[in-house]
Simulated assay, not measured.
Amino acid sequence: MGILTVDMTSKIHGISTVKAAFTTPTGPGVRHKGLRAELLEKCLIKTISEQIQAELNSELTAQELCSVTRADYTAEGFKSVRSAPSTNCDYKTDQAITFWRENYQKVQGVTGVGSPDGPFKKNTTFSTPISERLGNPMDFTHEN
């Protein structure tokens, strides 16, 4: 009130300028489907919805509530016993057994391995000068 008119007693109409300028599009007024196809579609929707409602409202039997594990894999008299570990392993400190750890000697392009128990640990062979390497069997000093 008061924005478009100065008259404060005027009633607000249920139409805006957008609604007044644009109308909703109307269809062509011609059928897109034939009467038979429309009736067939309605019949199929009705029968399928009835089937779904019947499945949802049916009572579950005791056999349907049994899990697959209980029905198929549980044998009478079976007792689960854990076997003793074959080796003493500590998952926090031991190296993981992987393909690369087992086959690092066969892979081309792998740098020198410092210790066989950790082949992929930090290796300072490239940054250590030859004269400072420990346990190097070769003597790299040249005498003329």
Rank of each mutant, 00 (worst) to 15 (best):
122 K>G: 01
101 R>K: 10
73 Y>K: 14
95 Q>D: 03
98 T>N: 01
49 S>G: 04
24 T>V: 14
77 G>P: 00
94 D>N: 08
100 W>H: 10
80 S>Q: 09
97 I>A: 14
120 F>A: 01
143 E>Q: 02
84 A>Q: 08
72 D>T: 12
135 G>S: 10
16 S>C: 11
108 Q>C: 08
79 K>L: 10
16 S>D: 03
70 R>F: 03
103 N>F: 09
13 H>K: 09
132 E>T: 12
70 R>I: 13
33 K>M: 09
110 V>W: 00
128 T>G: 01
69 T>F: 10
105 Q>N: 09
142 H>L: 08
106 K>M: 08
54 A>T: 14
14 G>D: 08
53 Q>E: 14
106 K>P: 00
18 V>G: 01
33 K>V: 12
103 N>A: 04
26 T>K: 12
31 R>A: 14
28 P>H: 13
4 L>R: 12
58 S>I: 15
73 Y>D: 13
25 P>F: 11
18 V>T: 12
119 P>E: 02
119 P>C: 07
50 E>N: 13
29 G>M: 10
103 N>D: 02
48 I>A: 14
37 A>D: 04
51 Q>Y: 07
20 A>H: 10
138 M>D: 03
140 F>H: 06
70 R>M: 11
118 G>Q: 09
140 F>V: 09
134 L>Q: 11
128 T>E: 03
6 V>A: 11
102 E>V: 15
109 G>V: 04
32 H>I: 15
135 G>V: 10
77 G>C: 06
127 S>T: 15
8 M>C: 05
32 H>C: 12
35 L>V: 11
62 A>I: 14
139 D>F: 03
8 M>Y: 02
44 L>A: 07
19 K>P: 00
68 V>L: 07
126 F>I: 15
17 T>L: 07
140 F>C: 06
77 G>I: 08
52 I>D: 03
93 T>V: 15
14 G>A: 08
102 E>T: 15
128 T>W: 02
105 Q>K: 11
98 T>R: 03
77 G>Y: 07
89 C>A: 11
